[in-house]
Design a protein around this nucleic acid. Structure first.
Ligand SMILES: NC(=O)c1ccc[n+]([C@@H]2O[C@H](COP(=O)([O-])OP(=O)(O)OC[C@H]3O[C@@H](n4cnc5c(N)ncnc54)[C@H](O)[C@@H]3O)[C@@H](O)[C@H]2O)c1
Ligand SMILES: NC(=O)c1ccc[n+]([C@@H]2O[C@H](COP(=O)([O-])OP(=O)(O)OC[C@H]3O[C@@H](n4cnc5c(N)ncnc54)[C@H](O)[C@@H]3O)[C@@H](O)[C@H]2O)c1
Lengths: 229, 229
DNA sequence: ACACATTTGTGCAAAAAAGCACAAATCGTC
DNA sequence: GACGATTTGTGCTTTTTTGCACAAATGTGT
């Protein structure tokens, strides 16, 4: 689990935005992007809530934590609100991402074109498999593909330094994940997205978010089983 | 968001297991499997909590909702507790899964070998792409691979009926996701894992869990930005 | 200028989740 | 069989999150 957003800062300030709110901001951002693409200028909390699947009251409270960006009796300016969220979340500049483990999943992530438009750029691929190292992998979807060289695990620290990667993705088997994580942290990475089905131990100040697909299916199975009764 | 586990049943019973607890059970289950593999017989709440990254108090409270399966002064029997969790979650029998959208992600999921050992079996692949329909895709990892035919989207309902699929995975582009979801529901699927970055509207009684990789990265970016200050 | 329809922002209440602390139960030892 | 060392299970407290309801602010029409 990532560190609380309410942790204190060096200067003593306390973030007022709750973790629950932060986890919903990306959905609002995406919905606003979609509305902007369809040239809609204004949106009400009711409409935006419906698109994102939350209650309008929760949406308004979430947004109120960023500031008072709406107009009573009118709603929110799509572009303006979108900009405010992107600024708050740090999406107005691209985050360089390093992917460790270029197997089924790592490759799918690399190929995926949706990251570029959401503030991320895959800048490096690393694997330990000799047959993969040195090969090129297409990154990004149609239009803006870039061929990236797969680097050796032993070059991890150098690659991170050279590319200035800030976010690390762990897509190795579970056995290797903790070791990879340790090296990412040592190399200065403080934000890790982990796909391996294992809990990563990291020092304070490092955030780990886990994506566990088997768990998600198991949770669904739990509910499904109950329905059958 | 999935339906509350505290929803009432037909017979009036109320599930006492909270959603937060349910979301952690898969991690406990996996850790116990790991311990069982290494032939460990007993485990304390402290140890199991450390492996899964939660507090021991929370672990004990979570487990207490399933029943009183530990022994004071001793701990928990690994195999016994593992069995109890698997039974509670419905993992003692395989759940048939249909994957709709056999692109980057759908294929990675199909290839993945870890599902079989966790109570799931991919029984059908569906796509709308004419060049994919009819081709075969290897499912599962070394040892137990099965070639699955990619079926046409128009056969979705038939395929679900024939394979008795209970869980549906949506791995299509966002534009198609709601339509696919509607058809899955109409075909009787009541548990959906959605990878498309969009909120799916489903009728009551249908659970959707969303895996949104871009959102996860954005949440990490939010925290990363704060650290930089 | 004023009444009226909207829609935001927020104080307060309720519910859910997490954390604390310790009594109760068990084991090994003397 | 009593005693001390453990470790579970749980009542209680605190924190977090969600939900409700409405005053405050804005635009519109007359
Ligand atoms: N593919 C899926 O659908 C899926 C689903 C759920 C979970 N996962 C998890 O995601 C992870 C990756 O899955 P996958 O299917 O891509 O596996 P994979 O076996 O296809 O790929 C793993 C890659 O990691 C590389 N690797 C191994 N050790 C390494 C190390 N120490 N450093 C760098 N690279 C290393 C391997 O060479 C391989 O290329 C696994 O932990 C898996 O459990 C995958
Ligand atoms: N690949 C990733 O790493 C990644 C990351 C984040 C999110 N996603 C999301 O996951 C989804 C799938 O991603 P992908 O990379 O596999 O995309 P993809 O384009 O590689 O694959 C999508 C597949 O869905 C099929 N499809 C399209 N419409 C369909 C329909 N109506 N019915 C059945 N099949 C249909 C296409 O033919 C294609 O094979 C997308 O929504 C994407 O945004 C993917």
């Amino acid at each position: 689990m990532p560190s609380k957003s309410t942790s204190s800062f060096k200067d003593g300030r306390i973030s007022k935005i709750s973790e629950a709110t932060i986890s919903r901001l990306p959905a609002y951002y995406r919905a606003l992007t979609q509305l902007a693409d369809s040239a809609q200028v204004r949106v009400s909390s009711e409409e935006l809530a419906a698109i994102t699947g939350v209650s309008s009251a929760m949406l308004r409270k979430d947004l109120s934590h960023l500031g008072s960006y709406g107009t009573r009796g009118v709603g929110y300016e799509v572009e303006f609100l979108r900009y405010q969220i992107s600024r708050e979340m740090g999406l107005n500049h691209d985050w360089p991402v390093v992917i460790v483990g270029v197997g089924n999943l790592g490759r799918a992530l690399a190929h995926y074109g949706g990251f570029g438009s959401r503030g991320f750029r895959v800048v490096a691929l690393v694997d330990s498999d000799q047959t993969l190292i040195g090969t090129k992998v297409k990154c990004g979807a149609e239009g803006k593909t870039v061929d990236l060289l797969v680097h050796a695990l032993s070059d991890l620290e150098d690659v991170i330094k050279e590319t200035n990667a800030r976010l690390g993705v762990v897509a190795t088997p579970a056995e290797s994940a903790q070791g990879v994580s340790d090296r990412l942290v040592k190399a200065g990475i403080r934000s890790i997205l982990n796909f391996a089905p294992i809990h990563l131990s990291v020092p304070d100040g490092v955030d780990v978010r886990k994506v566990d697909l088997a768990s998600e299916l198991q949770i669904l199975a739990f509910h499904e089983q109950r329905k059958a009764v």
